[in-house]
Design a binder for these strands. Structure first.
Length: 209
DNA sequence: GGCGCTCGCCGTCAGGTGGT
DNA sequence: ACCACCTGACGGCGAGCGCC
């Protein structure tokens, strides 16, 4: 917009007004390491690349999408000896509260997290599991790839928008500077015309006398 | 020095717009 | 309809400044 307006301005002004020149991925990788829980999700979390990082008695939810509100830190109250199926903490996702159970030796897994050899599961906090689905290695892989792809796309979009915003601000500044120049030119012209009018008036008055 | 205020810059989001 | 791009709006952050 600024470019168009500025170029229109440039079209009818003198050399004081310049034209705006025509213009000439950071990816978030899933880190597999000891102490890292990778969440493989079958529902809400799958759209939001998520890793859960464990440090001591704490599980951290590292999510690249800020739209996922809720707990960022899950505190394990009994990290040393949590009974199978015990609820560690609830987390909030777009689909509502989720609960993390540890460890999950057996049972029907809806969402699965892994910390080393220990497998964790996440299920909706409300009532019993519905539509229980076994998480297979293949589906986990696909979901991880999807999450990575979504993360890459988001990072790319943010990066492009970042650059676009910089460019937009640059053009806006240039546009404002151009307007200021134009104001100065018009003020000068106005002053000159007023002087010219004054002298013509005087000339006319003398002639009419 | 600490505090509050203002200003400029930046990243992000949301909505509009034009091209395909 | 979808996509890429542009831009206004918003909030965060640091620097500079005056006041106490």
């Amino acid at each position: 917009m600024y470019r168009r307006i500025l170029n229109e301005l440039s079209g009818d002004t003198g050399p004081t007004v310049s034209r705006i020149e025509e213009e000439p991925a950071n990816t978030s990788e899933e880190v597999e390491s000891p102490g890292t829980i990778t969440i493989a999700t079958g529902n809400a979390l799958q759209n939001f690349p998520t890793t859960i990082v464990s440090s001591g008695g704490t599980i951290q939810l590292a999510n690249s999408d800020s739209s996922v509100q809720g707990l960022q830190t899950l505190t394990m109250t009994n990290a040393g000896g949590i009974p199978a199926g015990a609820i560690v903490q609830s987390i909030q996702t777009q689909d509502g509260p989720q609960q993390i159970f540890v460890p999950a030796a057996t049972g029907n897994l809806i969402n699965v997290a892994r910390l080393g050899d220990v497998q964790y599961q996440i299920r909706p906090a409300t009532s019993l599991p519905q539509g229980v689905v076994m998480a297979t290695p293949a589906s986990l892989h696909t979901q991880t790839q999807l999450a990575e792809e979504a993360s890459r796309k988001r990072e790319l979009r943010l990066m492009k928008n970042r650059e676009a915003a910089k460019e937009c601000r640059r053009k806006k500044k240039e546009y404002i500077k151009c307007l200021e120049n134009r104001v100065a030119v018009l003020e000068n012209q106005n002053k000159t015309l007023i002087e010219e009018l004054k002298s013509l008036k005087e000339l006319y008055c003398h002639k009419s006398d």
